[in-house]
């Protein structure tokens, strides 16, 4: 295994035509790095542009309002993603219809339902999940940008689709890994599939599901900031603008705002997961 990994490394290295000396930045690159790093401790508090048009908002206002947009896009995208994840997660989990549940005495229409419909639904939702997940949120965003033009809803959808797919996959795996006894008990008492799922299977997996959702929220925040690089009014937009106008102090201001938000969420999701751990 280790040998295979080494071979893969050597192949990839030679295929990309990488050279060690390219890793050293050129003198121009070093200058950029030096100027950029020099501003790390002195982020800009006011705009650094030589010419500031009349009526421009102060820098800190821009930083905070773009942070707000970043947060809102992440929250809205995440809420849609959670909805998709819960619905698709239900269909792509097997534990409420497969296996020993076939043995319960049923009338023939529902037996056909169990034999044919549920596996088809399961396969279908698996395919949908994988299609949603296989395209990165940035690519979804670019796709929507090209199809619809710039729109805030496009950013939210771009986050919601891949996150919904991932949440559905993880949720269904978490539910399928729980013990089945409570489900059998409810099933024996005559509960339907949806009832069994939501009252016997999900409650056991719920702490994991909540913890994972918090973690994904943190990821959504990062994705939402990145979407700014493609023109949405989140932090990435202003990072890109300031960096290309060589206003490195401003870049650091935006980076610190982003870093602060991510660190707060990192702590928050960690705290929630610690308390949910058995």
């Amino acid at each position: 295994m280790i040998l295979c990994l080494m071979i893969a490394f050597v192949w990839a290295y030679s295929h990309l035509g990488l050279r060690g000396e390219d890793l050293h930045p050129s003198s121009g690159g070093l200058k950029v790095l030096g100027e950029f790093a020099a501003r790390a401790l002195t982020p800009a508090l006011t705009s650094e542009a030589d010419f500031v048009p009349e009526g421009t908002r102060p820098l800190l206002y821009i930083a905070l309002s773009s942070a707000r947009t970043t947060l809102f896009f992440a929250a809205a995208g995440m809420s849609l993603g959670l909805f998709l994840g819960i619905v698709l997660g239900f269909f792509s989990s097997t534990s409420w219809w497969a296996g020993d549940f076939g043995g319960v005495r049923r009338s023939s229409p529902s037996r056909i339902l169990g034999r044919v419909l549920f596996p088809v639904l399961y396969g279908g939702s698996r395919v949908i999940i994988n299609l949603m997940r296989s395209t990165h949120e940035v690519l979804w965003a670019v796709l929507f940008l090209t199809a619809f033009g710039l729109s805030n809803t496009a950013a939210v959808l771009a986050i919601a689709i891949p996150y919904g797919g991932t949440l559905a996959k993880i949720f269904s795996e978490m539910v399928d890994e729980t013990t089945r006894e409570p489900a059998h008990a409810l099933r024996g008492a005559g509960a339907s599939g949806l009832q069994t799922y939501s009252f016997a299977l999900v409650p056991q997996a719920l702490p994991d599901m909540i913890g994972y959702s918090f973690y994904r929220f943190e990821c959504a925040l990062r994705s939402s900031a990145i979407l700014g690089f493609f023109g949405f009014p989140t932090l990435g937009l202003f990072i890109r603008q300031s960096f290309s106008s060589l206003n490195y102090g401003e870049v650091w201001t935006f980076l610190y705002v982003l870093l602060g938000m991510v660190l707060i969420f990192d702590w928050w999701s960690g705290a929630v997961r610690r308390r949910l751990a058995p």
């Binding site: 990309l16 035509g17 990488l18 390219d22 890793l23 930045p25 050129s26 121009g28 690159g29 070093l30 950029v32 790095l33 950029f36 940035v138 990062r222 994705s223 900031a225 990145i226 690089f229 990435g236 990072i239 890109r240 960096f243 980076l255 982003l258 870093l259 991510v262 660190l263 990192d266």
Partner: peptide
Amino acid sequence: AIPEYIWAFILLAVMGPSAW
């Protein structure tokens, strides 16, 4: 905490265009 994309964006200016 800093996304890959932002790292790459900054490193591109520093290292110049290659896969690095």
